Simulated assay, not measured.
Amino acid sequence: MEGLIRFLFIAIGILYIVRAIMRWLIPMLFQSVVNKAQQQHQQQQTNYNSSQKQPTGRIKVDYVPEDRKKGKFPDSEGEFVDYEEVK
C-alpha cells in the first residue's frame, strides 16, 4: 500500500512540474513559429514587389491564344446584342 501512495505522489508531482513547464514552453514555441512565418511572408512580399516593377502606362501581353490571333471566337463566347436603354 505504501508503494501505491508513493507512486501517486511522485506521479502527481511529475505531472504538476510538466504542466508548469509547458505553460512557459508552448507559448515560446508558438511565438517562434509565428515569427518565422512572418519573416517568410515579408521576404516573399519583397521578392514579389521587386520583380513586378514595370513602367506605368505600358501593357505587356505574354500569351495570346491561337484562336484569338485569327479573329475566330468559340461559340461559347456568345453574341453581342445592341440594346437601347428605355427611361
Results as ranks from 00 to 15, higher is better:
Gln44Thr: 04
Thr56Gly: 08
Phe7Thr: 09
Arg58Ile: 13
Gly3Ser: 14
Pro65Ser: 07
Gln42Gly: 03
Gly57Asp: 05
Lys69Tyr: 03
Phe73Glu: 10
Lys53Leu: 15
Pro65Gln: 02
Thr46Cys: 00
Gln45Glu: 13
Gly13Asn: 02
Gln38Gly: 10
Ile59Cys: 08
Gln38Arg: 11
Leu4Lys: 04
Ala20Arg: 07
Asp67Pro: 06
Pro27Tyr: 00
Glu77Thr: 05
Gln39Lys: 10
Pro65Tyr: 00
Phe9Thr: 13
Leu15Met: 09
Asp67Gly: 03
Glu85Arg: 08
Phe73Ile: 08
Arg68Asn: 04
Gly78Leu: 06
Pro55Asp: 12
Lys36Leu: 15
Tyr63Gln: 13
Gln39Ser: 12
Ile14Arg: 01
Val64Ile: 11
Ile5Met: 08
Thr46Ile: 12
Arg58Thr: 14
Phe30Lys: 05
Val18Tyr: 02
Met22Tyr: 07
Met1Thr: 07
Leu8Glu: 14
Ile12Asp: 08
Ile17His: 00
Lys70His: 09
Glu85Ile: 15
Val18Ile: 13
Val81Trp: 01
Met28Phe: 09
Ala37Asn: 12
Glu2Ser: 06
Gln39Glu: 14
Val33Gly: 06
Arg6Ala: 15
Asp62His: 11
Gln42His: 05
Met22Cys: 09
His41Cys: 06
Asp82His: 04
Ala11Cys: 08
Ile5Asp: 10
Arg19His: 15
Val61Asp: 02
Asp82Arg: 05
Arg68Leu: 12
Gln42Met: 10
Glu85Leu: 15
Gln38Phe: 07
Ala11Pro: 00
Ala37Tyr: 07
Gly71Trp: 01
Ala11Phe: 08
Lys36Met: 12
Phe7Val: 09
Gln43Arg: 05
Arg19Ile: 06
Phe73Asp: 09
Gln40Cys: 03
Ile5Asn: 08
Ser32Tyr: 02
Tyr16Arg: 03
Phe80Pro: 01
Met22Phe: 09
Gly13Gln: 01
Gly78Arg: 02
Glu79Ser: 11
Phe7Trp: 04
Leu4Gly: 01
Gln40Tyr: 05
Met22Glu: 11
Arg19Cys: 13
Ile21Val: 14
Gln54Lys: 13
Ser76Thr: 06
Asn47Cys: 03
Val81Asp: 04
Phe80Val: 15
Lys36Phe: 10
Gln39His: 06
Glu79Lys: 12
Arg23Asp: 12
Thr56Asp: 12
Gly3Leu: 14
Gly71Pro: 03
Thr46Arg: 07
Tyr63His: 14
Asp67Tyr: 14
Asn35Phe: 03
Ile12Gln: 07
Gln45Tyr: 03
Val64Glu: 00
Gln44Glu: 11
Arg68Gln: 06
Glu85Cys: 09
Ala37Val: 09
